[in-house]
Design a protein around this nucleic acid. Structure first.
Length: 708
DNA sequence: AACTCTTTAGTCGCG
DNA sequence: CTAAAGAGTT
């Protein structure tokens, strides 16, 4: 019954779920966003407003798509398999496979992940004899992706200076190479799918009439191209339902355009978004802090989170002398919490930059506390897995030059750079693949002959086998297992290779297309799954970006220093500070019950000691919500003069005779470093850190210090 | 082809 | 500092 389905929703949630036609839902952190999305889908289907086939739901991550499907199948007695619910990339892949002819692609096109793409760019630059000092492969790759994400082909790029013109040429050459080889990168998946719909009216109208309801999650993260794609799929009678939070837009740097929210309202003729502001996650102290911080941003649609959960505890603030001490503080606090019965996995330690995890990891490790670091290399991105997949790709299609180059001499079989050059020249001259060149030269080169025999044997043997066995045979015949057995650190890799067979089995039983091509696409699109040890009870370490969408009982936000958070690089970008502030907002709203915020006066960064003033974001949290865990209040951040924005060290003045970071000598304690100031006039004090005795406060008027 | 040395860069990162 | 990539050596 629908009453059953809609029960327990608050009025705003109910309005969102049952919105007639298109709507924009401004869903604050912890406001039940996923619940609204899934309930709307279930409600639409249950009340027969749409058939499961008339529905399209898009998310950004596989995790979000999976969660939606899981919740949906709990609400509805339907098979979720055929539903068009998935990531932008996953759905585009589906579209392109179904219409590969119209899209101008081979039906078995391969998907290049970021690393594959970079390798392809490097190969191209080499072939074209491009000076890679002037045109760095990474820059070329970024140029290509940025343009594709903006919906621009090389012939549409406006390049006025010689440098951009050359980049644009390289962009065109790169696309030509991809077309020759039948491969598609992530950005291409979207652009090609967009063009397919834009150019083919019949196809477009088919999908426009079919999809009666399109739902989009995390709408603030959509790029221009993604929004254009959505609009192409939506016909005049399609309801577009977008859910997002402009205050949580933290991915502008990778093409997300919050402006899409305003554009969407205008395009759909919507007067107001539906606002979900009741928060079901945190105590009001945490929300008040988050609301106060985010109110510092000018460009926002505007909303305040509230809760009836109660005030909760004050936010604990800690000032550490350096990053090691900060880590020590975090560890001690976690120990106490655990002693009081909190599970380790209920605690998250957040930081702005990955480099900060080292000190915290070290402290946790030394203290013997279990922890897990998010991010880092994912299963399908591991070298041994990519090698094995390359063998499988060659088994399916030996003309795959990318796969060929990856494993032609791995494990080594005496095919060096020289041999490859010959092959490459022959292939380029004859206009055929490296594999064909290799077959032609197999009589002349013993190593090549062995490789050709190996791949042909693999092809013959796997031709009629089901996927899991193809994977098994591929791993065995590749010689990778033998190679890693002789390596010191090879054990872990062998485990991963065995896990690959399991992954293939799991995929074969879950997917409705258990082909090798489908599995390879799956590997590129869902590189992160199959990670072991995810459920263990461990402290969670991650960047603030990685924490988006998650929640924890207790959260530590560390490294709250000017230059680090907000990050100095962001301060030089237009809108950078506002994005950093949204990042802080995301960090704050991850906490359900308890929040610690900390900063260090100095920290080791790039092998150098750096001194950081407390982050301005600390001062943006109302003092009444914060309890300092230090004996003395820490020196406040004061906004720097416009000319010195981004400068980490304040200029000396009458009140501050030494720069922070200056080396000084004290008659009793010897040499030290100036770490901070507090108070004014006669009460002014100076904080000096000494290597042996630690930090000391001195009355500025009395202390005898000399610069050194 | 394997090994060693040097250089270099270093925000965040879905698919 | 430190990891990774490129260059140079054996």
């Amino acid at each position: 019954m629908s009453s059953n389905l809609l029960g327990g929703l608050n009025p705003d949630q109910l309005a969102a779920v049952t919105a007639p036609g298109s709507a924009l839902v401004l869903a604050g952190a912890g406001s039940g966003k996923t619940r609204v999305l899934t309930t709307r889908i279930a409600w639409l289907i249950q009340t027969a407003q749409v058939s499961p086939m008339g529905l399209l739901a898009v998310t950004f991550t596989n995790k979000a798509a999976k969660e939606m499907l899981t919740r949906l199948s709990a609400m509805l007695p339907i098979n979720t398999r055929g539903l068009w619910v998935g990531t932008f990339h996953g759905l585009c892949n589906r579209l392109l496979r179904a219409h590969h002819r119209d899209a101008g692609l081979p039906q078995q096109f391969q998907i290049l992940d970021a690393a594959d793409q970079l390798a392809a760019v490097k190969r191209l630059l080499k072939v074209l004899n491009v000076d890679t000092d002037k045109y760095e492969p990474r820059k070329v790759q970024a140029f290509i992706n940025q343009n594709k994400e903006a919906g621009q082909r090389a012939d549409k790029v406006e390049a006025w200076d010689p440098y951009s013109r050359r980049l644009t040429e390289l962009f065109a050459e790169y696309d030509a190479q991809c077309n020759r080889e039948g491969v598609v990168d992530f950005a291409e998946l979207l652009l090609r799918s967009y063009e397919l719909l834009a150019r083919n009216a019949l196809l477009r109208e088919h999908y426009q009439t079919r999809f009666r309801h399109i739902l989009v999650d995390e709408f603030q993260d959509t790029s221009k191209l993604q929004y254009a794609w959505l609009k192409l799929l939506a016909g005049p009678d399609t309801a577009l339902f977008a859910v997002g939070d402009d205050d949580q837009s933290i991915y502008a740097f990778r093409g997300a355009d919050v402006g899409n929210m305003g554009v969407f309202m205008r395009d759909m003729g919507l007067a107001e978004p539906i606002k979900l502001t009741q928060n079901y996650r945190s105590y009001s102290t945490i929300l008040d802090a988050a609301n106060a911080v985010i109110s510092g941003n000018e460009n926002r649609l505007g909303k305040d989170l509230w809760t009836d959960a109660g005030v909760g505890e004050p936010i604990r603030r800690y000032q550490a002398s350096d990053d090691r001490e900060e880590a020590g503080f975090v560890v001690e606090a976690i120990r106490d919490l655990h002693r009081d019965g909190l599970d380790y996995s209920d605690v998250a330690v957040l930081y702005r930059a990955n480099a900060q995890s080292r000190a915290i990891e070290h402290a946790l490790f030394t203290a013997g506390l279990p922890y897990r670091v998010y991010g880092g290399q994912r299963f399908f991105e591991r070298a041994e897995i990519k090698h094995a997949l390359a063998y499988l790709r060659l088994a399916a299609n030996p003309e795959d030059d990318n796969a060929f180059l990856r494993v032609v001499n791995f494990p080594t079989r005496g095919i060096g750079a020289r041999t490859l050059e010959t092959l490459d020249a022959a292939a380029r001259q004859g206009g055929f693949s490296l594999w064909q060149a290799a077959c032609a030269d197999a009589g002349k080169h013993k190593g090549l002959a062995g490789f050709v025999r190996l791949i042909e044997g693999l092809r013959a043997e796997t031709a009629n086998l089901p996927l899991p066995e193809v994977a098994e045979v591929g791993v065995e015949r590749s010689g990778l297992l033998g190679h890693y057995r002789t390596e010191k650190e090879g054990e872990r890799r062998i485990e991963n290779l065995n896990e690959l067979t399991n992954a293939a089995s799991a995929f074969a039983s879950e997917s409705d297309d258990p082909s090798l091509t489908a599995f390879l696409a799956h590997a590129a699109l869902e590189a992160g799954d199959y990670e072991a040890g995810a459920s263990a009870s461990a402290v969670q370490l991650m960047t603030v970006h990685a924490a988006k969408g998650l929640e924890f009982h207790t959260v530590f936000i560390t490294g709250l220093e000017e230059g680090l958070f907000p990050h100095e690089n962001a301060l030089n970008e237009a809108g950078g500070l506002e994005e950093e502030r949204r990042l802080m907002y995301v960090a704050l709203t991850r906490a359900r019950r308890r929040l610690f915020i900390s900063h260090a006066e100095q920290r080791m960064l790039h092998g150098q000691l750096r001194y950081g003033l407390p982050s301005r974001f600390l001062e943006e949290i109302p003092a009444a919500l914060v309890q300092s865990l230090n004996r003395r209040p820490s020196p406040a951040y004061t906004a720097p003069a416009a000319a010195s924005v981004g400068v980490r060290v304040p200029q000396p003045s009458r009140d501050l005779p030494y720069q922070i970071g200056a080396r000084v000598s004290h008659p009793r304690y010897g040499e030290g470093v100036v770490c901070g100031y507090q108070g004014r006039g006669a009460e002014a004090e100076i904080l000096v850190g000494f290597p042996k005795v630690g930090d000391k406060w001195f009355i500025l008027d009395y202390v005898k210090l000399t610069a050194c």
